[in-house]
């Protein structure tokens, strides 16, 4: 379970995350909201990539501010919105560093199995030997997700992982995430730009605006005309197609 308690983060005058106290359950949680709502800041604060100004974050019983970073890295993997690799590595080498928190050098039988599994799950077999700077944005994105999976954690935080992905790979990734939730009992928090994707795959939706959590609940509770029109300050329509909610804008 992930809990935040009065979490606050300021950037100068801007309060990016404003006194957020939430509890995120198991399964797949989607964070939605307009640009600048503080989604990334919240996610990165939970993943201790950003140090909050006030408040507490507890992930699986560990206080992220006081737990040793390496111990945390075995429980929680976090992937930023923009992933720029400053050095030249092959896909396989990058994914291999997912094993870094577990010590060793990524060459043990268990490590190898984890790496192969992650490459396989993200469909990276064909490009495993290629350098990342020679790949498309979507392939690179998948390589980073694979690294996070190789980390073999209980918690996975992803910030807009569908960026750069074509529909096929976006759908495949979301299916993979839901599969990981049921099969490996992984708890996943993912910032999603596409509300239809959130409506289709999320177990729980958290809506943010101006640094605050304005709604939290099931898809049925949060993906509604009133909530969305309010959240995005744009009249929304919600249709049902084959039993799924589809969001349309006026």
């Amino acid at each position: 379970m992930i809990q935040t308690d009065s979490l606050t983060k300021r950037h100068g005058d801007i309060v990016a995350v404003d006194d957020v106290t939430i509890e995120l359950g198991d399964g797949l949680t989607a964070i939605i909201g307009p640009n600048g709502a503080g989604k990334s800041t919240l996610l990165c604060s939970i993943g201790r990539l950003i140090r909050a100004d006030a408040g507490r974050v507890v992930v699986g019983g560990l206080d992220v501010a006081t737990t040793r970073s390496r111990d945390l890295a075995r429980r929680l993997a976090v992937l930023r919105q923009e992933n720029h690799l400053p050095i030249r590595l092959s896909v396989e080498e990058l994914v291999g560093f997912g094993r870094f928190p577990h010590g060793g050098n990524g060459r043990s039988v268990h490590d190898r199995a984890r790496i192969e599994n992650a490459l396989d799950l993200l469909g990276l077999e064909p490009v495993r030997g290629r350098f990342l700077d020679e790949l498309s944005g979507g392939q690179r994105q998948r390589a980073f997700v694979a690294m996070a999976l190789a980390q073999d954690t209980d918690y996975l935080l992803l910030d807009e992982p569908l960026n750069n992905l074509d529909p096929r790979h976006a759908v495949e990734l979301m299916r993979l995430l839901t599969r990981l939730v049921t099969q490996r009992d992984l708890r996943i928090v993912v910032v999603l730009h596409d509300l239809n994707v959130a409506a289709r795959y999320a177990d729980e939706v958290v809506a943010m605006r101006e640094g605050r959590v304005v709604a939290q609940g099931s898809v049925e509770q949060v993906i509604t005309v009133e909530q969305l029109s309010d959240l995005f300050e744009t009249p929304a329509r919600v249709a049902e197609v084959e039993g799924r909610r589809i969001v349309l804008w006026e």
């Binding site: 970073s69 390496r70 560093f97």
Partner: peptide
């Protein structure tokens, strides 16, 4: 060596992997 490579992956990635 692995530590240096992880450090070079970028500040956030390095922290995410628990590097000192």
């Amino acid at each position: 060596a692995d530590r240096f490579t992880v450090a070079a992956l970028g500040e956030d990635t390095a922290r995410g992997l628990g590097l000192d």
